[in-house]
């Protein structure tokens, strides 16, 4: 999900917040550090770089590093920190930077990686969208992917897979087959409803894409924004998201058929079964709005 920094806390359930936030004390609890680099348990060389509320995966191999999203929107210091963190782990050069999708909060600020000699890879539509938008803070895409590409470097294979349009029209799912890990940004929120009014989205292709993700072999998912308590995602998380979206679509269709879209439906449609999902109160009405647009003939 696309969120700003503070959303890191907002996306935690109240119970989790209670766990990490001690009872009020004279001195405020230590804020989480601005950024952190974490090795993914059970892997030899897969890392998560988090800066405030965004994170990216990188893989260190003897022949070089495969990095992903620079996450440097409004904060060029995040990108230099990212590169410095990599340099603490390896002397090997950063060979690739792979964009998860074109949205600025994930891909802005890649210049230090470019200067370090990395090749930038993204979906074909990401390159086109960035050109259309003339977004100056994105490092241009060197190589594009349409449906699938595998990158093998220093004994590690990384698959870049296009599962159709979802939260953008150019999202690449990244999968490490040996490690059974995926890196999925924004279109598979963990234990949360979808972000705001799901702008720039294709709800039903999104469902199809989720089914494709579930058909792949993987055990753990690294999200583009830290999950609850910083945990990784599971197949159950993805299955639950699909159920939520299907149930939401069915409820909004009923409301649309009853002529309730948009304002009445936005007020009335509730999915109590999913009330424990994060951001339910704030974003469910906007999720409803998105499906009302669809069922009114909109995109």
């Amino acid at each position: 999900m696309r969120r700003f920094a503070l959303a890191l806390l907002a996306c935690l359930p109240a119970s989790a917040l209670a766990q990490i936030t001690p009872a009020p004390a004279p001195s405020a609890p230590a804020a989480p550090p601005l950024f952190a680099t974490t090795k993914v348990e059970g892997t030899d060389n897969v890392y998560i770089f988090r800066y405030q509320g965004h994170q990216a995966m990188f893989i260190v191999t003897p022949d070089g590093v495969i990095a992903t999203d620079p996450i440097g929107r409004y904060r060029p210091q995040a990108v230099t920190a990212y590169l410095d963190e990599i340099k603490k782990l390896t002397n090997a050069p950063v060979r690739y930077v792979i964009y998860s999708h074109h949205h600025y909060d994930h891909i802005a600020g890649g210049k230090p990686f470019k200067d370090a000699g990395a090749t930038f890879v993204a979906h074909k539509r990401a390159k086109e969208r960035l050109a259309e938008l003339n977004f100056a803070d994105a490092t241009p895409v060197d190589e594009t992917v349409e449906d699938k590409r595998s990158i093998t470097l220093g004994g590690t294979t990384l698959e870049l897979i296009y599962v159709g349009r979802n939260h953008s029209d150019n999202t690449l799912l990244m999968r490490l087959p040996k490690e059974k890990l995926i890196f999925a940004v924004d279109f598979l929120p963990i234990n949360s409803v979808n972000w705001r009014n799901m702008p720039d989205s294709w709800p039903f292709e999104w469902e199809d894409g989720i089914k494709k993700v579930l058909a792949l072999e993987w055990d753990r998912m690294i999200p583009g924004h830290p999950g609850p308590g910083g945990r990784l995602g599971t197949r159950d998380d993805v299955t639950n998201l699909l159920a939520y979206m299907q149930d939401l679509a069915a409820e909004v269709k009923k409301a649309a058929d009853a002529g309730k879209c948009m304002d009445t439906a936005i007020r009335e449609v509730k999915l109590p079964k999913y009330a424990t999902l994060n951001n339910y109160e704030n974003w469910l009405p906007m999720n409803v709005e998105r499906y009302c647009l669809y069922y009114s003939g909109g995109m």
Binding site: H103, Y104, F135, P199
Partner: peptide
């Protein structure tokens, strides 16, 4: 505001 935030904030 929502529409232009998506455009200028995210490129969406």
């Amino acid at each position: 505001a929502r529409r232009y935030c998506a455009l200028w904030g995210r490129g969406a």
